[in-house]
């Protein structure tokens, strides 16, 4: 196997891995987003139900599916718990750090799991407002760090995959 690294997971991760919350697709989702790719070995599908409450967009329900490691599953699970009942604006503000903290800490090489979870969430929120054809003033025009990183990972893996496939053909 390739060079390995110890992964002393926080018990919270094991707990959520064992009993993930809000798991599975949502039939009446307002918006869904996918981040990551099978080639990365890391992919999150996020399903949000958004409704207007007192003139504010609120995440009334959130579920997920995850293809990835234990930390990935735990990060996606805890994210759905963190955003349920929050306004979309508050949900947007959640950073990858917040998720890592909520999990009681993540090993450094697993930071990308919480980055991917935030990447999926912000992609869903952007898509939602694109669909609604509005742009709330708090929504940044430029991609945030988490969104950029998510893009980068997807792009890098796509590149590696293409390179490999062309090599296999060549052989």
């Amino acid at each position: 196997m390739s060079s390995r690294i110890p992964l002393p997971y926080n018990p919270k991760i094991i707990e959520l891995f064992r009993n993930p919350k809000n798991m599975g697709p949502m039939k009446d989702a307002t918006i869904t987003a996918i981040a990551g790719s099978p080639a990365c070995g890391d992919m999150i599908s996020l399903y949000l139900k958004i409704e207007k409450r007192n003139n504010e967009d609120v995440v009334v329900n959130a579920t997920f599916e995850s293809y990835g490691c234990a930390a990935n599953i735990a990060a996606a699970s805890i994210l759905t718990e963190m955003i349920k009942g929050k306004s979309v604006k508050e949900a947007w503000m959640i950073s990858w750090r917040d998720i890592a903290d909520e999990l009681g800490g993540l090993p450094v090489i697993k930071y990308h799991c919480s980055i991917l979870a935030v990447g999926a969430l912000r992609r869903a929120i952007r898509d939602y407002y694109k669909k609604m054809k509005v742009h709330p003033d708090w929504l940044p025009r430029d991609l945030t760090v988490e969104e950029k990183q998510t893009f980068e990972e997807e792009k890098m893996m796509e590149h590696l995959r293409k390179m490999r496939e062309s090599m296999v053909k060549y052989k």
């Binding site: 390739s2 990935n72 890098m156």
Partner: peptide, 16 residues
């Protein structure tokens, strides 16, 4: 058991 997945390795690449 162990896995040849990238997630268990230092680099983001699965087993060579």
């Amino acid at each position: 058991v162990s896995s040849g997945s990238a997630c268990t390795s230092r680099i983001l690449e699965p087993s060579h």
